[in-house]
Design a protein around this nucleic acid. Sequence first.
DNA 1: ACCGGTCCCTGTTAGC
DNA 2: TGCTAACAGGGACCGG
Length: 308
Amino acid sequence: MPELPEVETVRDGLARHVLDRTVTAVEVRREYSVRRHEGGPLDFAGRLTGRRFEAAVRRGKFLWLPLDPVVGTVPDDALMAHLGMSGQLLVRTTPVEVAAGGSHPHLRVRLLLSGGAALDFVDQRTFGHLSVTDLGPTPDGAPGGAGSPLAAVPDPAAHIARDLLDPALDRAALVAAVRGRRTGLKRALLDQALVSGIGNIYADEALWRARLHYARPTDTLRRAEVERALDAAAEVMTEALAQGGTSFDALYVDVNGQSGYFDRSLAVYGKAGEPCPRCGAPVRRDEFMNRSSFTCPGCQPRPRHGRW
DNA sequence: ACCGGTCCCTGTTAGC
DNA sequence: TGCTAACAGGGACCGG
């Protein structure tokens, strides 16, 4: 599933292959994929056609491409994408690729670009979406310097917190905020308004590395324990990113979330019954928030007064 | 302001 | 073989 490392890989690919291209036509094959766009599919197409991509920016799992502004000003709107659990953004550059991509069974939205290229939004399970939105300031400040194309985020993502790979993240404030919550540790890690970019897979891997159980109450955690969890999350995502960055070629913006390159490196996620790589105890699967949590019962003892 | 539960969606897999 | 049910999951949304 696309979490921070996968989305960053996509962002990097887009930055290499679609900047300075202009949208020449827009084809919405499934309205649901632009459901978050105010004004519907026609307005979506209207706001994109003739526009040029200026940059590729990410915060957490949100990704956006600021659009060309009036000459001499800063971009004030962008194509925003959230990949959900199965979304992909694929760049087609040759006529053969464009033609073949057009018949992909899960092609939801296609942007035809200058130079005969296409940017395809492919999404099997349709939790992802695209929209064109205004850019604005955020409560925690801009991702880039004022005046840069990174100086604002899409309004619908204004509530999304900085992620662990953001140099401007205030670590001390984040640790304090986590300890100020009254919930379970994993819930806090998954809360995109607290710290963004962490999904179910990397949350489980981070907690295993930090030897902390997901139900540890945030308000009883020591500062060092919160630091350990955050360090582990940053570390596991950085490692995944390093592997993801090598897996795409010049013509293809990869979101290899499901059959991923990183599968080999997972210690507990999806490994119920298999031995913990550290202590050998069989990995346990629990129901958690209508999904799964994987832990090592030896390394991550369940707290007596846990909180989901 | 925070917290936790529910729902959205579709393809694959497991089970009968 | 053919059907159904479970499962995967981020985030908007809502009620407490």
